[in-house]
Simulated scan of single mutants.
Amino acid sequence: MPQASHTKAAEHHEATAKTHRTAAEHHGKGDHAKGLEHSTKAHGQSEAAHKMSTEAHGKSVAHAKK
């Protein structure tokens, strides 16, 4: 079902955004080691969120053609 897929992708994107914000906060405080740690985590989350988004889009396309 496309709705569930899009919801799951959105939740992953939201979690990723939070991790990016945390990385920015650490960099802003000058704690670049922690900033890098969170940046690395956010990068991995972004890739997973992108994959989920692509899958959700594919389900949308499949259901639209029915």
Rank of each mutant, 00 (worst) to 15 (best):
M1R: 04
S5Y: 07
T7S: 12
H12R: 10
H12C: 10
E14T: 03
E14S: 06
E14N: 05
R21A: 03
A23V: 01
A23M: 06
A24K: 01
A24Q: 07
E25D: 15
E25P: 02
H26W: 07
H26A: 14
G28W: 08
K29G: 13
G30N: 11
G30Y: 09
G30M: 13
G30S: 08
H32R: 12
K34C: 04
K34Y: 05
G35Y: 04
G35C: 08
L36H: 15
L36N: 15
L36S: 15
L36K: 15
E37N: 01
H38K: 03
H38R: 01
S39M: 04
T40K: 14
K41F: 00
K41I: 02
K41D: 07
A42T: 01
H43Y: 13
H43V: 09
G44D: 08
G44S: 12
S46Q: 06
E47T: 11
A48I: 10
A49T: 11
H50Y: 08
H50P: 02
K51Q: 08
M52S: 05
S53D: 10
S53P: 01
S53V: 00
T54F: 10
T54C: 09
T54V: 14
E55F: 02
E55S: 11
A56K: 04
H57C: 10
K59F: 01
S60A: 06
S60C: 06
K66N: 14
K66A: 15
